[in-house]
Design a protein around this nucleic acid. Structure first.
Lengths: 149, 149
DNA sequence: GTCTCTGGTCAACGAGGTTGACGACACGAG
DNA sequence: CTCGTGTCGTCAACCTCGTTGACCAGAGAC
């Protein structure tokens, strides 16, 4: 039994998430995007860089409500990173499409994420890094088997 | 290189945190405390159950600002789980002390946390569970060495 | 006695979501 | 063709969990 007073696992996960998120934001700031926030990842990790992606699809991929995703899209639209264009195939729908500046943003953002993850992978070691991702997938309800040990 | 479009590590951590937090809250609800929220853990994992703990100490232990902890204490005081009593040793200070109901709450809350962590430990396996905690400590800036996997 | 530091507090704000309701359009069944 | 049902985006209201800045009262060193 762990000593009472230690942080619970949930909080540890939250703190780790914030640390990595802040690192990504810092990386993005260095790369010339000082207004990036951790939450933007929910969009920029999932949007199609050429043609854009529908709001609903973005929400589903990021596993959040479409209303939540809308706030994000509103925000990024105000900042000039995306715009909403009508979907030619479905007149109810709109496609969230990157602007030229948005394409640069997403490219740098994905590089910043990759850099942070590469650092984690390097410092944790390949095995621990993969084990971490597997455990996380499992805890979030992932269906895959965990291999023995 | 991972496929573009996969969640980044930060988000995975966040989601895992929310899943576990929700489980703790659900466990607490079953145990007769339907108004528990994940954030309450920041207090109930760190408060001294007999004598109480100063706000500043709670904030430090939970690694958050004292203003943030104050909101939490206000909330739990409104719910009747804690009260602020003057500190006999320092007339500037107050001790956040559990009420009788608060003591029951904290006891059940720590059991609920322990149950969730025990489940994680069981399902992940001892090795993966320990590796997860170690990796998390490391990522959050923990100083300890990681043994060579 | 003054000086500085610390404990608690008030106020304002920000990020990152949630649920509910709803109008507009799509689309298959009849 | 039109009618029912489901989907897309949206508005509104709300919630959780914090943050920074300013400040006062009391503690403790000198």
């Amino acid at each position: 039994m762990r000593t009472v007073g230690e942080p619970d696992l949930s909080r540890l996960l939250l703190e780790a998430s914030r640390v990595l998120g802040a690192e990504v934001v810092a990386g993005l700031e260095e790369r010339g995007f000082p207004d990036a926030r951790p939450g933007h990842a929910a969009l920029f990790m999932h949007i199609d860089r050429r043609w854009g992606t529908r709001l609903t699809d973005l929400a589903r991929r990021a596993r959040m409500s479409k209303q939540g995703m809308m706030l994000l899209v509103d925000d990024l639209e105000n900042r000039g990173y995306v715009r909403r264009v009508p979907d030619a195939e479905d007149s109810r729908a709109k496609v969230v499409r990157l602007t030229a500046r948005g394409r640069r943003f997403v490219a740098e953002a994905r590089r910043a994420v990759a850099a942070v993850e590469a650092r984690a992978r390097r410092e944790l070691g390949e095995r621990r890094y993969e084990a971490l991702r597997d455990s996380l997938d499992y805890l979030t309800g992932g269906v895959e088997e965990l291999d023995g040990s």
